[in-house]
Design a protein around this nucleic acid. Structure first.
Lengths: 311, 311
DNA sequence: ATGTGGACATAAGCTGGCGTTATGAGTGAC
DNA sequence: GTCACTCATAACGCCAGCTTATGTCCACAT
């Protein structure tokens, strides 16, 4: 039986992805070389010595089987392949930076700095970007992040356990005020191979309601909005515990899904998923920054808030 | 002088990102634990022993300062923080998978398998996704990837050095035929703090032409389309060598930019960039799969082609 | 022609992280 | 009580990657 890997989960690419992809340090080195035009300068910037950089680049080239850097006594420049690889590398590093600020925010609970509570979708997709921006504007701001559903956010705010909250949903919990910082649109998506992908006439609510969909589990904010929009009639083909798992299944063609635009922005742009037009289903919700009535955000909370108020 | 890090380049987050972000193996382990509900099973799946997995998770928790996994004699489950971290981890792993297939395609030149030439934008943003899909459908297909401009792609096809080409642009090079597989829209984007971000009335061509923009260097496909659309009048505020550098500058608020929708999909979804409406500027181009007249794609080339023909 | 300096390569040695095997210990089912 | 499962701990070995110390090449200035 081994483990029968449920539905369209991870097909476990291969056993040693980590051995075929250089580590973060190496990727950063490559990016630094692209920018600085010299192995040695790049090494210095990363706080290692030039021979170390030289050997890492060599190792990377051996690992990938492609020449990445044109060395010359006058400096180093990326090859064409190197430039392409470097752009792919940047996306890994960006994801790692988002991970880093997120993790830091999750940890920094001990210090009594800026404390934030956010709903899952916001914590996952929006907050890391805001925190990266915040770090640029106010370096040294330590943020603590708590993630949960709307009631949890409200409870933390009312208990004065956090300074600022972010919720997605139709209403503002009582005792709180806030501003709408963006709108989130749920979108119906399907793999490009799915019949719906070629569809031009919008779906109507009944058709959506009677088609089995890949969905998050009950209780997730996304699911709530969908159930409300369809009158509780969504028909799950598959219920998965994480947004990413849902995406992966949808991309692999297991079926259509309904997801936040935030979660599938990249997949839509890259045509791994296609948006299916829908009519007459209110798949919209506001994203709000909220705080306790009478406790207008000040200091770091105000800084963070102002970063978010523009979309 | 140290190094005066040009424009809005990398502000070098901090010196040891790699020391604050677990490596790929650890992230994959975490993802596997989330899916399988057990340290030991996850270890087995990754081909390591249970004590190794135990120690890695411990190390990760120490590194991040957050409890990630709830261990019990009945199995292991992620904590709330762990679930959030795991979702961030998935994005790193996805980027790494895209890197991996791309790099593999770049290398596999020796074998005479499927050889593909593509323009930069396609090679960077679309091909990795297609190749991941191709690997699922036809495991073991070795792909060689060459990236260059349209003339280069045409030349390789005509010389029979590649089996399939992908170009972005208004015309099909002579001697080739092909099909439109998608449309790429260039979009005007600005940081949410930029005045244009709040704009509702569309920009007109003159206004766009007289505003200094952050752009790729001359000769890039994106730049060509923009120059053509504006009659060669684009006014560069900054000319950078990579799409990612342009994005980073735009996000940091250095100025507005014009970029492919493919490149900024995620930034738009996460509101790190805002799309600015434009009127009367033809910022559209077709993405085409092309091949030599009379050499209809067969075999693996046909497989790949069919994967792309749905957006 | 001839230094001189910057940039990359090579060599030798050290260290630490991560892996292994072998074992202990808690919990629930029968 | 014993089995079957979980995770933790301990002792040890290996290899990747770092450092320091050098060598080589080339461009440019003198």
């Amino acid at each position: 039986m081994s483990d029968s890997t449920a539905a369209g989960q991870e097909p476990v690419t291969a056993d040693r992805l980590a051995h075929r992809v250089p580590d973060l340090g190496a990727l950063q080195l490559l990016i630094a070389i692209a920018r600085l035009g010299s192995l040695g300068r790049a090494a210095r910037e990363l706080g290692i010595t030039q021979p170390a950089a030289s050997s890492r680049v060599r190792a990377m080239e051996r690992q990938l089987g492609v020449a990445l850097v044109d060395r010359s006594p006058r400096g180093s420049k990326l090859t064409d392949a190197g430039a392409l690889v470097t752009d792919w590398a940047r996306r890994i590093v960006e994801a790692a930076e988002a991970f880093d600020v997120g993790a830091q925010a999750l940890r920094d609970g001990r210090d009594k700095r800026l404390r934030v509570a956010a709903s899952m979708t916001i914590a996952e997709y929006l907050l890391p970007g805001w925190l990266i921006a915040l770090r640029h504007e106010r370096p040294g701001t330590a943020v603590q992040l708590l993630a949960g559903n709307s009631q949890f956010v409200a409870e933390r705010l009312l208990a004065d356990a956090v300074d600022l909250g972010f919720v997605e949903g139709l209403t503002v919990p009582s005792g709180l005020t806030g501003v709408v910082i963006a709108r989130d649109h749920l979108v119906v998506v399907a793999a490009p191979t799915h019949p719906w992908a070629r569809r031009r006439r919008p779906l109507d609510p009944e058709e959506l309601a009677r088609t089995p969909l890949i969905l998050r589990e009950h209780g997730s904010g996304t699911r709530q909005v969908l159930d409300a929009a369809l009158g509780g009639l969504a028909d799950p083909l598959l219920e998965l515990a994480s947004t990413t798992a849902v995406k992966a299944s949808a991309v692999s063609g297991a079926g259509p899904s309904v997801l936040s635009e935030l979660a599938v922005g990249e997949e839509l742009a890259a045509r791994r998923l296609v948006r299916v037009p829908v009519d007459g289903v209110p798949l919209d919700r506001a994203l709000r920054a909220v705080w306790r009535v009478g406790h207008r955000p000040v200091g770091p909370a105000r800084d963070l808030l102002s970063l978010t108020r523009a979309g």
